[in-house]
Design a protein around this nucleic acid. Structure first.
Length: 478
RNA sequence: AGCGGGAUGGAGGAGAGGUACCUCGGGAGGCUCAUAACCUCCAGACGCCGGUUCGAUUCCGGCUCCCGCAACCA
């Protein structure tokens, strides 16, 4: 079966944060799992590069906006390498092909009568060059960032998308089981839609904001970044031209899954789905929403000094251990809290003393007592329970299953004492040790979607009958 | 106001209609193959009040306390 998978595209106005890493690693585990199961997978990620915030950030940094987005896009690419992601495409919304796709999406929605012009007025802060909602203003109505300025009421003529028209169609879409995971977010979305939808502004006046995709047929306006960015999910497949047939194969005929953060429901499951409906394109089959990561009971922020960046993790623990920590100790959909103390604890308990030590134990026995490597086992170690956990996005449960197996192997060694047996009855001892090595190989295989490099190392060690270097060295804990 | 989530041993987290699991920490013991690792045993928990049920910590209702959301935020 063809399976399409995508993350949301990180917005390139800042360095990658741990939430990006979580989303990438979750999606990568899905992609690798499906490939293992023999499915044809197209896994996409990339960067979202338009909009006011980016233009401002570039100006603030004194950089040309093109150089600025190139730099950050590359940072996200590097993060992908640090996390050993296996995506098949990295789409940038500044690609010419993407521009063409976003404009075609616009034309189609327009042809449906879903785009119209309207005057939008709001409180505008000249300091920020942005409209402000009440929430963003101080009690006396001043901008938080520019308290000396009084926001002015400004009117702007923009194009709007008739989201309201799709209220019933969206309710029908949301009535399908599984279109949103977890289920309670689907109910949340339904309630939200029932509360009434308002049309969205999908363009900006070019004189205010030049950094965006031009609106077809109106050179005074550029697309609001959301309209352009959402289209990436199909432009990455070559839509609309579809010269390689990827769009047909993966989007139209395959199963589509999007991975996103919990703040994305309105954009991914409502706005984007309405856009697809308007353009007569199949809706996304499933959107999985992960939770957020806090630290020390608070949202990570530079001012609090509790930021843990993905590079902090990979530098300290390495790629595979970082993947492990994010997949097993961060809850897939609830918010989670991590601190260095806990990360150190998990690393030490489960990887150093757990998996790493187990590999050393078994391979030392095998290397010492077996003349030749064991044969590669035929039987699949993947159980229905394991597949089911992953397909339900319960990554942590799939990992629990593997670690239960690790523990069972440790227990077996203690119980059956191969190191003693081999001195009493050489053949029986060898045969037991061979069984242990085979089990270790199976554990290695189970780690494939979780810790790709460790999976290879363990399998190679067993097949070479050679104890590897410590997989997870002890590290200095602060 | 409303909508949603959470409340599990000393700490942090899973979990599920019927002996409550994991990591750390505490106590006792074992092993020596292993990265001073591993294994066994012990002490210790399901916020409060009702309801459904043979039985609920798990389902339902109410309460208390925390946390999100409340649309152009990319």
């Amino acid at each position: 079966m063809a399976r399409y998978l995508t993350t949301t595209l990180p917005y390139v106005n800042a360095d990658p944060h741990i939430g990006n890493a979580l989303e990438f690693v979750q999606a990568d585990m899905l992609a690798r799992t499906w490939r293992l199961a023999g499915e044809d997978v197209f896994f996409s990620s990339g960067t979202d590069e338009h909009g006011q915030k980016i233009l401002q950030a570039a100006e603030k940094a004194g950089k040309d906006v093109h150089d600025y987005v190139d730099h950050y896009s590359n940072e996200f690419k590097k993060l992908g390498e640090s996390l050993n992601l296996s995506y098949d495409a990295f789409i940038r919304t500044t690609n010419p092909e993407h521009y063409a796709a976003a404009q075609e999406m616009w034309r189609r929605c327009d042809a449906k009568g879903d785009i119209y012009k309207k005057t939008y007025s709001g409180l505008y802060c000249v300091g920020c060059e942005a409209y402000k909602t009440e929430k963003e203003l101080t009690e006396d109505g001043k901008c938080v960032l520019h308290p000396s300025l009084t926001p002015e009421v400004i009117s702007e003529e923009n194009y709007f998308f008739r989201l309201s028209k799709y209220q019933d169609a969206l309710l029908e879409y949301l009535s399908r089981d599984g279109v949103i995971v977890p289920e309670w977010r689907r109910e949340e979305a339904i309630n939200f839609v029932k509360g009434g939808l308002e049309d969205f502004s999908i363009s900006r006046e070019k004189i205010r904001l030049s950094w965006g995709v031009p609106v077809p047929g109106d050179d005074t306006q550029v697309m609001y970044v959301w309209f352009d960015a959402l289209t990436n999910y199909i432009s990455t497949l070559g839509w609309p031209g579809d010269a390689d047939g990827l769009f047909k194969k993966f989007w139209e005929e395959g199963t589509t899954v999007q991975v996103a953060g919990k703040d994305q429901v309105r954009f991914q499951s409502l706005m984007w789905q309405a856009m697809l409906m308007s353009a007569d394109i199949k809706n996304t089959d499933q959107v999985f929403y992960h939770g957020f990561i806090n630290s020390g009971g608070q949202r990570m922020s530079k001012s609090l000094g509790n930021v843990i960046s993905p590079y902090d993790l990979t530098d300290k623990y390495g790629t595979d251990a970082t993947r492990y920590l994010l997949l097993r100790h961060v809850h897939p959909v609830e918010d989670s809290d991590i601190t260095w103390e806990r990360l150190d604890e998990w690393y030490l308990a489960n990887l150093v003393n757990g998996l790493g030590n187990l590999v050393a134990r078994v391979m030392k026995l095998a290397e010492t007592h077996l003349e030749e490597p064991v044969a590669r086992p035929e039987a699949s170690p993947f159980t229905d329970e394991y597949w089911a956990a992953i397909n339900a996005f319960n990554f942590h449960q799939a990992l629990d299953l593997v670690w239960a197996r690790n523990q069972a192997l440790d227990e077996r060694i203690t119980r059956e004492e191969p190191f003693k047996l081999v001195k009493i009855d050489v053949e029986a001892g060898k045969s037991l040790i061979a069984e242990l090595a085979v089990e270790l190989y199976q554990i290695g295989r189970l780690l494939n979607p979780i810790m790709p490099a460790t999976n290879e190392l363990i399998k190679a060690a067993v097949l070479a009958n050679k104890k590897p270097e410590n997989l997870f060295p002890r590290i200095e804990t602060a």
